[in-house]
Design a protein around this nucleic acid. Structure first.
Length: 847
RNA sequence: GGGCGCUUAGCUCAGUUGGUUAGAGCGCAGCCUUCACACGGCUGAGGUCGCUGGUUCGAGUCCAGUAGCGCCCACCA
């Protein structure tokens, strides 16, 4: 090893962790330590598709957990020589931001308004929300999120993420909107995107359609109501939908109803004639085995309606209320008037009263709990309404595409591997194409217009698309090519699509946004397909799936080589942490209490994919480790003396050779663990070595290193200390970037984070040596300590006589470390005798 | 209802392809005010590896079943 040491002027008298974050984060920024090298070629690059955190909320420890793990991976790869492409995005596109902007600024978005470039907010908020155009609304969103993003970046810098801060993007920014719209237009051109008027899941509060991936089941109280359709009894949890009933259905093999297939019955109260039909999805075990089909009570209704070619009798409006006028075929009588205009709940009560009174309800409602579909952010159950929506084909209705996507996912290396099952389950369970349009404002607009015929009707089958060079556009304020703004909404003119895209429609192109697809072909060629996608398990079905889908459709490749799926953060009661439960701890408080390295230590202790408890005890240990690195480094560097540090060829003492052999095993093990993305294992191995290095090896050689025995012995110890210390600083660097940079700066040039990762070659010919000498010496030392402790003596107490009994082979090892043991244990007289097993007899000197 | 994961010392977790007396830290107990570290150090006590079977010379590790917990998914009759 070369000798960069010129004394140790950099070692402070009293090393401390305080202030390291600010100092080194500033230095890294100033020195552009983590800047991407734009001249790099694909073969040299390791690129990471970092999850853009949602900036509309506050960061919590769950985010820190995953990002720090990824950073440890990134730092290892960087030291291995890869040129890191490690950008950071902000997800500021979507409902949470929209809602915050509305309340924060007191505005409401009205897409029909024209853009007002001179818009300013009033000094004092008025009583009513101010209506603003969509571009104005987006400006306000960007204004609010910019502040949040600043705070986020500060936290990320403080926790030591080695991202290239010159390469950030926001999912509502121009670049992201352009990329997202371009991808949508490409999908449209290949007929992978299409619009259709169809029943869709609808949130009556948010007033928007919802995709399968955004839905979740919630257990809700409900009740079975047994209703009489002439002589047939059915059971339903939704009696309010009787007016929407279009048929009854039973299983084709159900003998109870076989004779009735093809006949008809009358709905209670309304007396509408509906057919009795057979369908394989009807379950004989549920209720009475025969169900009423309504348009639409649930997704099965939609299936039956479609496959059995039934008419439509929709009664629920988009606001969640019953329509004022009955659907075709339903009489506008007393029964209808009792439910018209009411909410679903009110209508149900009214129906139950009327059905009881008419005798068409058998017995009392039977309370149950059952799963009901909700929008993941919603408070009321989803309804199904018919509306025009945009879809992207995702294999949900295309077996061949489904299979190709499953194959693509197999090209990805999953860490841990079993997480892939979640992807497969999701793809195999898809029941329709991806609904990407949302009836919201703050999002990436669907870049489409529709021509208006002479009658003023929009022609949805011949959408007008912009030239890609114009992107991003907003069809509610920009006019299509060949038209002028005056023609908007006029017969013979055009109308813009009012909807925005699902947030995942933009999130699913993060590789393309980050890598500069079409905007920067050189960058794209150097970074895509990317090397790593780290993310949480809960968004495999959304973010990972959608990204893979769009990369497959556009580029015909899997977008990354590896994906790491992190685990959950659990609170001390082992419950998943979430804001709603109020058990979220803010990261900054912990960073201030324990220091960034300590919090990182905790995060990196979490095994890949494994749920981890938020444990301040582990952070405490991380802090202790960081302090130990400071002190041990100071001490070891102090033993190196003032002259040049001897190199590898000075190592000849058996104990030193043994230490280097152990070190080689550590380097080998930690490197292999890292290569398999198991940062936690690498940390564990390094930490284990480090503590025994401090407790045993350093104690054994500290006297010899001073040169009190011989110059050769001192040189051997000094060379070994320097080699081990250098390797340890680098092995710890991915986990404890601040303290390792600090100690590295005491005696080395440049940043430890761009220093080469340690190799076995550094310990040269000693990598295969037997480490037994160190092990035996440590055992003897431990035995002496035990006796001193038992006799309540200081560790400095002298040993009058030390006798080691062991087999001949072991005695050779003991002899090899004899002088070091004598010095470290404070021995006056040292004897060895042959014996069966290693045993140590200690006779302490008198006080 | 289907799938995946977890279950090892009081607590938080390791335990790589089955191999000798099962590991770490915290906590606990005791000792040492040591000249790198009291934001310390040393030493020690503590576990029939969820349960039941099976394979094997040998199982925390493999197989089958089972219980509890967590997560994901599923057409709300």
């Amino acid at each position: 090893m070369s000798n960069p040491l010129t004394g140790s002027p950099g070692v402070p008298e009293k090393p401390s962790l305080e202030g390291l974050e600010d100092r080194w984060a500033g230095t890294w920024e100033h020195d552009a330590t983590y800047r991407f090298d734009p001249t790099a070629t694909r073969a040299e690059v390791f690129s990471i598709d970092t999850p853009p955190p949602t900036v509309s909320g506050s960061l919590h420890m769950g985010s820190v957990f995953g990002y720090v793990q990824t950073d440890a991976i990134a730092r290892f790869r960087r030291m291995q020589g890869w040129k890191l492409f490690y950008p950071m995005g902000w997800d500021d596109n979507g409902l949470p931001t929209e809602r915050r902007v509305q309340t924060y600024f007191g505005v409401t978005c009205d897409p029909s308004l024209p853009y007002d470039p001179d818009f300013t907010l009033p000094e004092e908020p008025g009583k009513d929300d101010i209506p603003v155009s969509r571009p104005n609304f987006i400006e306000l969103c960007e204004r609010l999120t910019a502040e949040d993003e600043q705070a986020f970046e500060e936290l990320w810098r403080r926790i030591g993420l080695s991202v290239d801060w010159q390469r950030t993007y926001a999912t509502i920014g121009d670049r992201a909107r352009r990329t997202s719209q371009r991808m949508f237009l490409r999908n449209l051109a290949r007929d992978e995107a299409y619009s259709s008027e169809a029943p869709t899941m609808w949130d009556v509060d948010f007033q928007t359609a919802v995709a399968q991936a955004e839905m979740e089941d919630k257990e809700q109280p409900g009740a079975y109501h047994r209703l009489r359709f002439d002589d047939i009894e059915i059971e339903t949890t939704r009696p309010e939908l009787v007016a929407a009933c279009v048929a009854l259905v039973a299983h084709p093999d159900d003998e109870r109803y076989a004779a009735r297939f093809g006949t008809s019955v009358h709905t209670p109260l309304f007396g509408v004639e509906v057919p009795v039909l057979a369908h394989r999805l009807a379950e004989p075990d549920k209720g009475t085995g025969i169900a009423m089909i309504c348009t639409f009570g649930d997704i099965t209704d939609v299936t039956w309606w479609r496959e059995l070619g039934l008419p439509t009798r929709s009664i629920i409006l988009r606001n969640g209320r019953i329509a004022d006028t009955p659907p075709p075929g339903v009489p506008d009588g007393d029964a209808w008037r009792a439910i018209a205009g009411r909410t679903v709940k009110q209508a149900q009560r009214a129906m139950v009263e009327m059905l009881s009174a008419s005798g068409e309800m058998v017995g009392d409602p039977r309370p149950i709990t059952h799963p009901v579909k909700f929008y993941e952010r919603g408070d009321r159950p989803l309804e199904i309404v018919t509306s025009r929506q945009w879809f992207i084909r995702n294999g949900g209705r295309d077996e061949a595409l489904r299979q190709r996507l499953l194959e693509r996912a197999s090209e990805l290396v999953w860490h841990p591997h079993y997480m892939k099952v979640r992807f497969d389950d999701w793809v195999n369970g898809l029941n329709g194409d991806w609904l990407v349009s949302r009836q919201r404002f703050f999002g990436v607009p669907i870049p489409i217009w529709y021509p208006l015929g002479p009658d003023g009707e929009a022609d949805h089958d011949s959408p007008l698309v912009p030239d890609e060079a114009r992107l991003p556009i907003d069809p509610t304020t920009d006019a299509p090519e060949g038209y002028t703004e005056e023609q908007r909404g006029k017969a013979g003119g055009f109308i813009g699509d009012p909807d925005v895209m699902d947030t995942w429609a933009t999130s699913s192109v993060t590789p393309q946004i980050a890598c500069g697809w079409e905007d920067d072909p050189d960058l794209f060629a150097a970074t895509f397909p990317m090397d790593l996608r780290p993310q949480g398990p809960e968004i495999i079905r959304t973010w990972l799936f959608a990204t893979l889908l769009r990369s497959h459709l556009e580029h015909g490749v899997v977008p990354w080589r590896h994906t790491t799926i992190n685990g959950w953060i659990l609170d001390p009661d082992r419950k998943k942490m979430s804001k709603s439960k109020g058990n979220v701890v803010t990261p900054m408080a912990l960073l201030e209490e324990f220091g960034s390295d300590a919090v990182r230590y905790w995060a990196c202790n979490g095994r890949p994919g494994t749920d981890t408890a938020l444990d301040q005890g582990v952070m405490k240990i991380g802090r202790r480790l960081a302090i130990k690195v400071l002190n041990a480094s100071k001490f070891a560097l102090g033993r190196l003396g003032d002259g040049p540090v001897p190199g590898l060829d000075s190592v000849h003492e058996a104990l030193d050779v043994a230490l280097l052999a152990e070190l080689a095993k550590l380097v080998e093990g930690a490197t292999a663990a890292h290569e398999g993305f198991d940062y936690a294992r690498a940390l564990e191995l390094t930490e284990g070595f480090f503590w025994s290095f401090c407790d045993d090896y350093v104690e054994l050689v500290k006297t010899r290193a001073y040169g009190e025995r011989s110059a050769e012995g001192a040189d051997s110890a000094r060379a070994t200390l320097a080699i081990a210390l250098s390797a340890l600083h680098r092995l710890f660097a991915p986990f404890l970037p601040f303290v390792t940079e600090e100690v590295w700066s005491w005696w080395q040039e440049g940043s430890v984070h761009v220093a080469p990762w340690p190799t076995i070659a550094e310990v040269g010919p000693h990598s295969g040596a037997e480490p037994a000498v160190l092990d035996v010496a440590a055992q003897v030392l431990g035995a002496v300590r035990r006796v001193k402790t038992e006799n309540k003596k200081s560790m400095r107490a002298r040993v009058a006589n030390l006798t080691v009994r062991a087999p001949r082979a072991v005695l050779l090892d003991v002899d090899a470390a004899r002088e070091d043991i004598v010095d470290a244990a404070g021995v006056d007289n040292f004897d060895t005798e042959e014996g069966d097993a290693l045993s140590v007899e200690v006779e302490l000197a008198d006080d």
